[in-house]
């Protein structure tokens, strides 16, 4: 039995074991192991939101990233939005980009979504990586990007092409 198979069985039997297994899962179980454990947690608990949140708050950057990436598969409704807001407060491009994945795109309100998109522009996260940008693009976001472009031009700095093409 592999480390991962044993860990998944442990979590399905006793969800509390996930807190000791999840931090080690990438090095013991390989890529994808953390996502497997989150899936097992979703099966073991009728409402896994609190456990997923605890894992995130106790997680290092790598754990947090994998939790954000797994959110669309976990069927949590808007309960995990505080995690997305937390990731958007960081200055880690990996976390900011993951926050604007399918889950963030589905649940963030308009203001927070627009701020997230603008943050991506500031951090050079390609806008193509923002899930559902076409669907959620609105006049206010267009205005914010135009103001950003004007600020860059006033400073004599180039405007990124992925901003220009959306004006």
């Amino acid at each position: 039995m592999t480390w991962l198979a044993r860990a998944v069985a442990d979590v399905e039997r006793d969800p509390e074991t996930v807190y000791a297994l999840f931090p080690r899962a990438a090095r013991e179980g390989g890529p994808g192991a953390r996502a497997e454990l989150l899936r097992a947690l979703g099966k073991a608990l009728p409402d896994p939101a609190a456990a997923v949140m605890k894992l995130y708050w106790q997680g290092d950057a790598g754990e947090r990233l994998e939790i954000l990436e797994s959110l669309p598969q976990l069927d949590l409704g808007p309960a995990a939005l505080p995690l997305v807001h937390d990731a958007l407060r960081t200055n880690d491009t990996r976390l900011v980009a993951a926050a604007l994945g399918p889950y963030g795109s589905a649940w963030l309100d308009d203001h927070a979504f627009r701020q997230g998109v603008l943050k991506c522009v500031f951090m050079s996260v390609p806008l193509a990586s923002v899930e559902g940008l076409g669907r959620r693009f609105d006049e206010e976001l267009r205005r914010m990007l135009a103001d950003f472009a004007a600020e860059r031009r006033a400073a004599g700095r180039p405007v990124p092409p992925d901003v220009l093409e959306r004006l």
């Binding site: 990438a26 950057a61 880690d92 491009t93 990996r94 980009a97 951090m123 996260v125 390609p126």
Partner: peptide, 8 residues
Amino acid sequence: NTILRGTR
């Protein structure tokens, strides 16, 4: 490297 570089 890309912006997503760094340790996971």
